[in-house]
């Protein structure tokens, strides 16, 4: 009985040995022999891109939703084409397409006007590309949120003679916020995870740094798990913040009814 149990622990130890690669702590330490510093720098880059892309996406989303709801027929159709194409084509393909085409077009335009070609930084390109992708989803989220504002509030604003700009600032945006936040929160989480795709075009964000560290040291498992933990911490931390923002945005509103049951 006991020997069988002992045998089993030995078996388990034998099984776990390759998993518990001995030098984990040294590999992940912040100072140069370890790669922890590189990973953290990659995480900082990822967060920077995610924040930039989310902000750009929000700006595109607000103007896109405004155009879809109140714009002319041509604007509406063009926005429909934009959101449909971006939501139907894989991000990876869009990133490649916009990354090459975008930098190429900007340089050609500069050349046309007699300026020297510029080297567009990976950061700016990444933010631009992911921002365009986020913008398409944000357009739909914000459009839906604006549509769920009680019509009376918009009519009241009109009746008070507010200009469209003032109405947007004072009524539409604050009133749509509680409806938009769940969708926007989801978009933020997607933005943090989509930064990983920039590894494919060679930008030094967390996944790319992890790949380099893993390929150099051959400790693939350790580094990918470490990066996964970092991403997960970012997500969980975001969830806490999102919960607070949601409570703040819903203040004064009746609590959500329990679904179904």
């Amino acid at each position: 009985m006991f020997s069988a149990a002992l045998q089993r622990t030995l078996d388990i130890e034998h099984l776990l040995n390759p998993l518990l690669q001995s030098a984990t702590v040294e590999l992940l330490s912040i100072s140069p022999p370890g790669w922890g510093g590189n990973l953290l720098r990659g995480l900082a880059n990822s967060i920077q891109i995610a924040v930039g892309a989310f902000g750009l996406g929000l700006a595109i989303g607000i103007s896109g939703a405004w155009g879809k709801l109140y714009g002319g027929p041509v604007v509406r159709d063009l926005l429909e084409v934009y959101t449909t194409i971006v939501r139907a084509v894989p991000e990876l393909v869009l990133i490649l397409l916009l990354y090459y085409a975008g930098t190429d077009l900007i340089n050609r335009a500069l050349e046309q006007f007699g300026y020297p070609a510029i080297d567009i930084s990976g950061l700016a390109a990444g933010i631009g590309v992911l921002g365009v992708v986020q913008g398409a989803y944000a357009t739909e989220v914000i459009r839906g949120a604006i549509l769920s504002i009680p019509q009376g509030q918009v009519e009241a604003a009109r009746a008070y003679g507010m200009s469209p700009g003032k109405m947007l600032r004072r009524i539409t945006l604050p009133a749509m916020l509680p409806f938009a936040i769940p969708g926007l929160a989801n978009l933020w989480l997607i933005a943090t995870k989509d930064t990983a795709l920039l590894a494919v075009v060679g930008f030094n964000e967390l996944t790319q740094e992890t790949r380099q560290a893993a390929a150099t040291t051959k400790y693939y498992f350790t580094f990918y798990v470490a990066a996964g933990v970092l991403y997960l911490m970012l997500t969980l931390f975001s969830n806490v913040i999102i919960g607070r923002i949601e409570r703040w945005a819903r203040r004064g509103m009746p609590p959500v009814a329990e679904a179904g049951r």
Binding site: V200, T207, K218, F221
Partner: peptide
């Protein structure tokens, strides 16, 4: 939570390179 909280690309590489090396 874990799968939804980490990028798919990372999961893919963890399985392919990580398990592949183990």
């Amino acid at each position: 939570t874990i799968i939804r909280g980490t990028p798919l690309l990372l999961q893919l590489w963890l399985l392919y390179y990580g398990l592949g090396s183990l």
